[in-house]
Design a protein around this nucleic acid. Structure first.
Lengths: 125, 125
DNA sequence: AATTTAATGCAACTAAGTTGCATAAGCAAA
DNA sequence: TTTGCTTATGCAACTTAGTTGCATTAAATT
Protein backbone atom coordinates (compact mmCIF):
# COMPACT_ATOMS: atom_id res chain seq x y z
CA UNK A 1 0.00 0.00 0.00
CA UNK A 2 1.85 3.00 -1.30
CA UNK A 3 2.05 6.53 -0.01
CA UNK A 4 -0.35 8.88 -1.77
CA UNK A 5 1.56 11.62 -3.51
CA UNK A 6 0.02 15.03 -3.89
CA UNK A 7 0.34 15.17 -7.65
CA UNK A 8 -1.37 17.76 -9.84
CA UNK A 9 -3.98 15.20 -10.80
CA UNK A 10 -4.71 14.18 -7.22
CA UNK A 11 -5.15 17.83 -6.23
CA UNK A 12 -7.49 18.38 -9.17
CA UNK A 13 -9.67 15.46 -8.14
CA UNK A 14 -9.73 16.57 -4.51
CA UNK A 15 -10.73 20.08 -5.54
CA UNK A 16 -13.68 18.68 -7.46
CA UNK A 17 -14.92 17.01 -4.32
CA UNK A 18 -14.31 20.19 -2.30
CA UNK A 19 -16.44 22.21 -4.69
CA UNK A 20 -19.27 19.74 -4.83
CA UNK A 21 -21.79 18.95 -2.14
CA UNK A 22 -22.78 15.87 -4.04
CA UNK A 23 -21.20 12.56 -4.70
CA UNK A 24 -19.71 11.97 -8.11
CA UNK A 25 -19.81 8.83 -10.18
CA UNK A 26 -16.61 7.54 -11.71
CA UNK A 27 -18.18 8.08 -15.11
CA UNK A 28 -18.95 11.70 -14.30
CA UNK A 29 -15.44 12.26 -12.98
CA UNK A 30 -13.92 10.87 -16.16
CA UNK A 31 -16.21 13.16 -18.14
CA UNK A 32 -15.35 16.25 -16.09
CA UNK A 33 -11.63 15.57 -16.17
CA UNK A 34 -11.18 14.25 -19.68
CA UNK A 35 -9.24 17.34 -20.75
CA UNK A 36 -6.95 17.21 -17.76
CA UNK A 37 -6.14 13.56 -17.28
CA UNK A 38 -6.56 10.06 -18.52
CA UNK A 39 -9.53 7.92 -17.62
CA UNK A 40 -7.26 5.27 -16.11
CA UNK A 41 -5.72 7.90 -13.92
CA UNK A 42 -9.10 8.99 -12.63
CA UNK A 43 -10.01 5.44 -11.66
CA UNK A 44 -6.68 4.91 -9.98
CA UNK A 45 -6.69 8.17 -8.04
CA UNK A 46 -10.17 7.63 -6.74
CA UNK A 47 -9.26 4.10 -5.59
CA UNK A 48 -6.18 5.41 -3.85
CA UNK A 49 -8.16 8.11 -2.08
CA UNK A 50 -10.55 5.42 -0.98
CA UNK A 51 -7.74 3.35 0.51
CA UNK A 52 -6.64 6.44 2.41
CA UNK A 53 -10.12 6.96 3.85
CA UNK A 54 -10.52 10.30 2.08
CA UNK A 55 -13.30 9.08 -0.17
CA UNK A 56 -15.76 6.27 0.12
CA UNK A 57 -17.68 4.53 -2.62
CA UNK A 58 -21.04 2.92 -3.10
CA UNK A 59 -23.01 1.35 -5.92
CA UNK A 60 -25.89 3.46 -7.25
CA UNK A 61 -29.16 1.92 -8.32
CA UNK A 62 -27.85 1.86 -11.88
CA UNK A 63 -24.82 -0.18 -10.82
CA UNK A 64 -22.42 2.70 -11.36
CA UNK A 65 -19.79 3.39 -8.74
CA UNK A 66 -20.18 6.65 -6.88
CA UNK A 67 -17.60 8.40 -4.75
CA UNK A 68 -17.99 10.92 -1.98
CA UNK A 69 -15.94 12.60 0.69
CA UNK A 70 -15.69 10.70 3.93
CA UNK A 71 -16.69 12.62 7.01
CA UNK A 72 -14.71 11.39 9.95
CA UNK A 73 -13.08 8.41 8.27
CA UNK A 74 -9.43 7.43 8.29
CA UNK A 75 -7.79 4.49 6.57
CA UNK A 76 -7.71 2.56 9.83
CA UNK A 77 -11.11 3.48 11.18
CA UNK A 78 -13.99 3.51 8.77
CA UNK A 79 -17.42 4.80 9.63
CA UNK A 80 -19.39 2.45 7.49
CA UNK A 81 -22.99 3.49 7.86
CA UNK A 82 -23.32 5.83 4.94
CA UNK A 83 -26.81 6.61 3.77
CA UNK A 84 -27.07 8.01 0.27
CA UNK A 85 -29.82 9.50 -1.80
CA UNK A 86 -30.12 9.11 -5.54
CA UNK A 87 -32.53 11.02 -7.74
CA UNK A 88 -34.52 8.94 -10.23
CA UNK A 89 -34.88 11.98 -12.46
CA UNK A 90 -31.39 13.39 -12.85
CA UNK A 91 -29.46 10.49 -11.35
CA UNK A 92 -27.51 12.71 -9.00
CA UNK A 93 -26.48 11.24 -5.70
CA UNK A 94 -26.00 12.84 -2.31
CA UNK A 95 -24.50 11.88 1.00
CA UNK A 96 -26.84 12.05 3.94
CA UNK A 97 -25.76 12.69 7.47
CA UNK A 98 -28.44 10.56 9.02
CA UNK A 99 -27.42 7.73 11.30
CA UNK A 100 -28.45 4.27 10.23
CA UNK A 101 -28.75 1.59 12.83
CA UNK A 102 -27.52 -1.68 11.39
CA UNK A 103 -29.80 -4.61 12.17
CA UNK A 104 -28.19 -7.82 13.40
CA UNK A 105 -28.87 -11.10 11.59
CA UNK A 106 -28.49 -14.50 13.19
CA UNK A 107 -25.58 -16.60 11.89
CA UNK A 108 -24.14 -13.61 10.06
CA UNK A 109 -21.41 -11.16 10.83
CA UNK A 110 -22.52 -7.79 9.54
CA UNK A 111 -19.73 -5.28 9.34
CA UNK A 112 -21.18 -2.53 7.22
CA UNK A 113 -24.38 -1.25 5.72
CA UNK A 114 -25.29 0.80 2.71
CA UNK A 115 -28.61 2.51 2.69
CA UNK A 116 -29.60 3.91 -0.69
CA UNK A 117 -32.71 6.06 -0.80
CA UNK A 118 -34.33 6.65 -4.16
CA UNK A 119 -36.70 9.41 -5.15
CA UNK A 120 -36.66 12.98 -6.38
CA UNK A 121 -34.20 15.63 -5.32
CA UNK A 122 -34.96 19.27 -4.58
CA UNK A 123 -34.08 20.35 -8.13
CA UNK A 124 -36.30 17.78 -9.77
CA UNK A 125 -39.42 18.23 -7.68
CA UNK B 1 -46.10 -3.96 -21.78
CA UNK B 2 -46.68 -7.47 -23.09
CA UNK B 3 -48.18 -10.49 -21.48
CA UNK B 4 -45.61 -12.85 -19.99
CA UNK B 5 -45.79 -16.24 -21.66
CA UNK B 6 -44.92 -19.36 -19.73
CA UNK B 7 -42.25 -20.53 -22.12
CA UNK B 8 -39.82 -23.33 -21.37
CA UNK B 9 -37.12 -20.77 -20.65
CA UNK B 10 -39.29 -18.75 -18.30
CA UNK B 11 -40.22 -21.90 -16.37
CA UNK B 12 -36.55 -22.88 -16.14
CA UNK B 13 -35.62 -19.50 -14.69
CA UNK B 14 -38.50 -19.57 -12.23
CA UNK B 15 -37.51 -23.07 -11.08
CA UNK B 16 -34.03 -21.83 -10.33
CA UNK B 17 -35.47 -19.20 -8.03
CA UNK B 18 -37.78 -21.78 -6.42
CA UNK B 19 -34.83 -24.02 -5.61
CA UNK B 20 -32.66 -21.28 -4.22
CA UNK B 21 -33.09 -19.44 -0.96
CA UNK B 22 -30.64 -16.87 -2.15
CA UNK B 23 -30.71 -14.12 -4.68
CA UNK B 24 -28.94 -14.71 -7.95
CA UNK B 25 -26.91 -12.24 -9.95
CA UNK B 26 -27.60 -11.88 -13.66
CA UNK B 27 -24.06 -13.08 -14.27
CA UNK B 28 -24.62 -16.21 -12.20
CA UNK B 29 -27.89 -16.89 -13.97
CA UNK B 30 -26.25 -16.64 -17.37
CA UNK B 31 -23.55 -19.00 -16.13
CA UNK B 32 -26.02 -21.53 -14.75
CA UNK B 33 -28.22 -21.46 -17.82
CA UNK B 34 -25.66 -21.18 -20.59
CA UNK B 35 -26.41 -24.69 -21.81
CA UNK B 36 -30.14 -24.11 -21.87
CA UNK B 37 -30.60 -20.63 -23.23
CA UNK B 38 -28.97 -17.56 -24.62
CA UNK B 39 -27.52 -14.84 -22.43
CA UNK B 40 -29.80 -12.26 -24.00
CA UNK B 41 -32.79 -14.40 -23.17
CA UNK B 42 -31.76 -14.59 -19.53
CA UNK B 43 -31.51 -10.82 -19.27
CA UNK B 44 -34.84 -10.36 -20.98
CA UNK B 45 -36.71 -12.95 -18.94
CA UNK B 46 -35.47 -11.58 -15.68
CA UNK B 47 -36.49 -8.06 -16.68
CA UNK B 48 -39.93 -9.29 -17.67
CA UNK B 49 -40.37 -11.08 -14.36
CA UNK B 50 -39.39 -7.88 -12.64
CA UNK B 51 -42.05 -5.93 -14.51
CA UNK B 52 -44.57 -8.52 -13.39
CA UNK B 53 -43.57 -8.14 -9.75
CA UNK B 54 -42.34 -11.73 -9.51
CA UNK B 55 -38.73 -10.76 -9.06
CA UNK B 56 -37.07 -7.65 -7.78
CA UNK B 57 -33.56 -6.44 -8.40
CA UNK B 58 -30.90 -4.54 -6.56
CA UNK B 59 -27.29 -3.51 -7.14
CA UNK B 60 -24.73 -5.45 -5.11
CA UNK B 61 -21.64 -3.81 -3.66
CA UNK B 62 -19.73 -4.90 -6.75
CA UNK B 63 -22.20 -3.10 -9.01
CA UNK B 64 -23.64 -6.33 -10.38
CA UNK B 65 -27.39 -6.67 -10.66
CA UNK B 66 -28.97 -9.23 -8.38
CA UNK B 67 -32.43 -10.70 -8.62
CA UNK B 68 -34.63 -12.32 -6.01
CA UNK B 69 -38.17 -13.50 -5.57
CA UNK B 70 -40.59 -10.85 -4.41
CA UNK B 71 -42.55 -11.72 -1.32
CA UNK B 72 -45.91 -10.00 -1.46
CA UNK B 73 -45.28 -7.86 -4.51
CA UNK B 74 -47.48 -7.45 -7.56
CA UNK B 75 -46.79 -5.37 -10.65
CA UNK B 76 -49.11 -2.64 -9.39
CA UNK B 77 -48.13 -2.63 -5.74
CA UNK B 78 -44.46 -2.89 -4.92
CA UNK B 79 -43.12 -3.38 -1.44
CA UNK B 80 -39.95 -1.40 -1.82
CA UNK B 81 -38.11 -1.79 1.44
CA UNK B 82 -36.01 -4.80 0.66
CA UNK B 83 -32.99 -5.33 2.86
CA UNK B 84 -30.32 -7.59 1.42
CA UNK B 85 -27.21 -9.17 2.75
CA UNK B 86 -24.08 -9.77 0.71
CA UNK B 87 -21.12 -11.85 1.81
CA UNK B 88 -17.71 -10.26 1.31
CA UNK B 89 -16.13 -13.70 1.13
CA UNK B 90 -18.22 -15.66 -1.39
CA UNK B 91 -20.21 -12.75 -2.80
CA UNK B 92 -23.52 -14.48 -2.32
CA UNK B 93 -26.51 -12.35 -1.57
CA UNK B 94 -29.62 -13.04 0.46
CA UNK B 95 -32.97 -11.42 0.95
CA UNK B 96 -33.80 -10.44 4.49
CA UNK B 97 -37.26 -10.25 5.88
CA UNK B 98 -36.53 -7.41 8.24
CA UNK B 99 -38.53 -4.22 7.98
CA UNK B 100 -36.64 -1.07 7.18
CA UNK B 101 -38.10 2.24 8.13
CA UNK B 102 -37.32 4.79 5.47
CA UNK B 103 -36.08 8.08 6.87
CA UNK B 104 -37.56 11.28 5.48
CA UNK B 105 -35.31 14.00 4.07
CA UNK B 106 -36.27 17.63 3.79
CA UNK B 107 -36.84 18.89 0.22
CA UNK B 108 -36.73 15.36 -1.13
CA UNK B 109 -39.38 12.90 -2.10
CA UNK B 110 -38.16 9.47 -1.08
CA UNK B 111 -40.10 6.65 -2.67
CA UNK B 112 -37.97 3.62 -2.02
CA UNK B 113 -34.99 2.42 -0.09
CA UNK B 114 -32.38 -0.27 -0.55
CA UNK B 115 -30.51 -1.46 2.46
CA UNK B 116 -27.48 -3.58 1.66
CA UNK B 117 -25.73 -5.23 4.57
CA UNK B 118 -22.19 -6.47 4.04
CA UNK B 119 -20.31 -9.02 6.05
CA UNK B 120 -19.83 -12.76 6.30
CA UNK B 121 -22.52 -15.34 5.75
CA UNK B 122 -23.08 -18.50 7.77
CA UNK B 123 -21.05 -20.62 5.35
CA UNK B 124 -18.06 -18.30 5.37
CA UNK B 125 -17.79 -17.73 9.11
C1' DA C 1 -54.97 -25.79 -38.01
C1' DA C 2 -54.30 -20.84 -38.87
C1' DT C 3 -53.03 -16.55 -37.27
C1' DT C 4 -51.23 -13.30 -34.30
C1' DT C 5 -47.98 -11.62 -31.20
C1' DA C 6 -44.51 -12.42 -27.93
C1' DA C 7 -40.08 -14.90 -27.10
C1' DT C 8 -35.67 -16.54 -28.61
C1' DG C 9 -30.96 -16.86 -30.81
C1' DC C 10 -27.34 -14.78 -32.79
C1' DA C 11 -24.03 -11.44 -33.74
C1' DA C 12 -22.57 -7.17 -33.23
C1' DC C 13 -22.36 -3.43 -30.23
C1' DT C 14 -21.80 -0.12 -26.02
C1' DA C 15 -19.89 1.23 -21.92
C1' DA C 16 -17.59 0.63 -17.29
C1' DG C 17 -13.76 -0.61 -15.50
C1' DT C 18 -8.92 -3.04 -15.71
C1' DT C 19 -4.08 -4.34 -17.03
C1' DG C 20 0.69 -4.10 -18.76
C1' DC C 21 4.23 -1.47 -19.84
C1' DA C 22 7.06 2.39 -20.96
C1' DT C 23 7.69 7.15 -19.51
C1' DA C 24 7.19 11.02 -16.31
C1' DA C 25 7.02 13.20 -12.05
C1' DG C 26 7.29 13.22 -6.56
C1' DC C 27 10.07 12.93 -2.83
C1' DA C 28 14.02 12.12 0.22
C1' DA C 29 18.73 12.12 1.07
C1' DA C 30 23.19 13.59 -0.15
C1' DT D 1 20.01 21.06 -6.69
C1' DT D 2 21.19 16.97 -8.37
C1' DT D 3 20.90 11.86 -7.80
C1' DG D 4 18.29 8.00 -7.39
C1' DC D 5 14.41 5.45 -5.98
C1' DT D 6 9.55 4.76 -6.20
C1' DT D 7 5.04 6.09 -7.22
C1' DA D 8 1.97 8.10 -10.73
C1' DT D 9 0.52 8.76 -15.41
C1' DG D 10 -0.69 7.93 -20.41
C1' DC D 11 -1.79 4.99 -23.81
C1' DA D 12 -3.58 1.14 -26.02
C1' DA D 13 -5.48 -2.98 -25.70
C1' DC D 14 -8.43 -5.80 -23.10
C1' DT D 15 -12.41 -7.79 -20.18
C1' DT D 16 -16.95 -8.11 -18.88
C1' DA D 17 -21.90 -6.68 -17.99
C1' DG D 18 -25.52 -5.52 -20.28
C1' DT D 19 -28.08 -3.97 -24.79
C1' DT D 20 -29.96 -3.76 -29.63
C1' DG D 21 -31.66 -5.10 -34.22
C1' DC D 22 -33.37 -8.45 -36.84
C1' DA D 23 -34.73 -12.80 -38.60
C1' DT D 24 -36.75 -17.07 -36.82
C1' DT D 25 -39.45 -19.81 -33.57
C1' DA D 26 -42.93 -20.94 -30.45
C1' DA D 27 -46.96 -19.59 -27.21
C1' DA D 28 -51.68 -18.56 -26.97
C1' DT D 29 -56.24 -17.63 -28.94
C1' DT D 30 -59.81 -18.35 -32.32
Amino acid sequence: MGVVRKTKSVVTVLNLFEESDYSLSAVRLVELLNKKMNKTTVYRIVERLKDEGILHSFAGKDGLTWYAKCKGCTSSNHVDSHPHFQCRECGKSECLSIDVQVPAISNHKVDSAELLLMGHCADCL
